[in-house]
């Protein structure tokens, strides 16, 4: 079915306007379906890859930290609060966006986010 669609689209000369209403409807409809299907297919493959990413790579740093912690148990280090950086950045970014949209005269810019 898909192959037939591809052939019928490729048979047309794309440099010339289509003549009849039926031709336009059929050609445009096929391209719409094919185009959207291709975009969805490619992005769904990427989605699947990102899900695999999460399984493969997401926990890597955490495991490394654990190992490091076990090895260096005897060394006394200052305890770093385990908070979610993404969460903090999201909150700050949202607050800035709100401030910018409310007061256009705001005269500041964010140079960096740093934890104290």
């Amino acid at each position: 079915m898909l192959h037939t669609y591809l052939l019928s689209i490729q048979d047309q000369d794309p440099t010339k306007p289509l003549e009849s209403f039926g031709e336009k409807l059929s050609y445009g409809g096929q391209m719409l379906l094919l185009g959207m299907a291709t975009v969805f297919a490619v992005l769904c493959i990427l989605w699947a890859c990102l899900v695999i990413f999460k399984m493969l790579f997401h926990d890597l740093p955490a495991k490394k930290t654990k190992t490091a912690d076990t090895v260096e148990q005897t060394v006394t280090e200052p305890v770093v609060e385990q908070t979610d950086d993404g969460e903090i950045i999201a909150a700050i970014a949202a607050a800035i966006a709100m401030a910018e949209s409310e007061c256009e005269h705001v005269k500041f810019r964010v140079v960096s986010f740093r934890r104290k």
Partner: peptide, 20 residues
């Protein structure tokens, strides 16, 4: 990603209308 894909509807719809 699905929303990024769904938002390409206008691209192909405009193609469709342009033929007409």
């Amino acid at each position: 990603l699905l929303m990024g894909a769904g938002a390409q509807l206008g691209v192909f719809a405009a193609f469709f209308f342009a033929l007409f």
